[in-house]
Amino acid sequence: MGLGTGILTGHLVTLRRFLRTFLVGQGRTLKRRGGGHQPLDFFRKPAPGTEPVIDQGPTTEGLFTVEYPDERLPTRERFRVLPVLIYDDEDGYVRCTSCNICAKVCPPQCIWMTHAQGPDGNPVPMPEDFFIDMDVCMNCGFCAEYCPFDAIKMDQNFEQSNYERHQTHIYSLQDLLVSSTYYAQTHPEAWASADEVAERNKVKKKKDQRLQKALAGPASGRPAPAAVS
């Protein structure tokens, strides 16, 4: 190789790569490859929520630029950022039973909860307080993985930058709750999986039973406390 040709070759490589970014197939059209072959458009921005998704396939050349925030990378179902708690849309029932398993498996120990108590002082399978310190959470997903009630799940919302941490980064129960509909949208496969369907049915059955009991309550339920006391 002659002296100096290394530099020339390098520049040619760069030039070729630059041109190929914009050329589809044999170089006929001036379009950006990637999500849906959109033409170049510098002026119109997609409406929020309708940003095209750039999922680069294996048969492509090079790497496409994902013009965040106007375009997005595909959000894979298992993609995890921060944990959330699920409540059921139909009745507002928080799935968490405060069994503490998520807190037990949490590697950096950022989950803390207290059990709710009924008016009679007996524990109720619900959290009274639930805190997650987002400045400690390592997004590992163990809490969601080992939760037996499908109550804690990993959210996919990564756009959470903010200007303050001391008041806002410890998420309380209210900050953590998301609806089951939201979860069904973000995690369609998991939602439809046999495990979660079975778990939902089980809970539903239990709720039905409880409802029946409550309905029958005034008649048969009242003597019970009397018997205890």
């Binding site: 994902v66 965040y68 925030p69 997005r72 990378l73 950022v81 921060l82 987002m134 400045d135 959470c137 390592m138 997004n139 990564f158 756009e159 959470q160 930058s161 903010n162 200007y163 303050e164 941490r165 980064h169």
Partner: peptide
């Protein structure tokens, strides 16, 4: 600015 995440993805950094 604080960016939560461990680690924040490049998109989160852009955000």
């Amino acid at each position: 600015v604080y960016i939560p995440g461990c680690p924040p993805t490049p998109q989160a950094l852009l955000h």
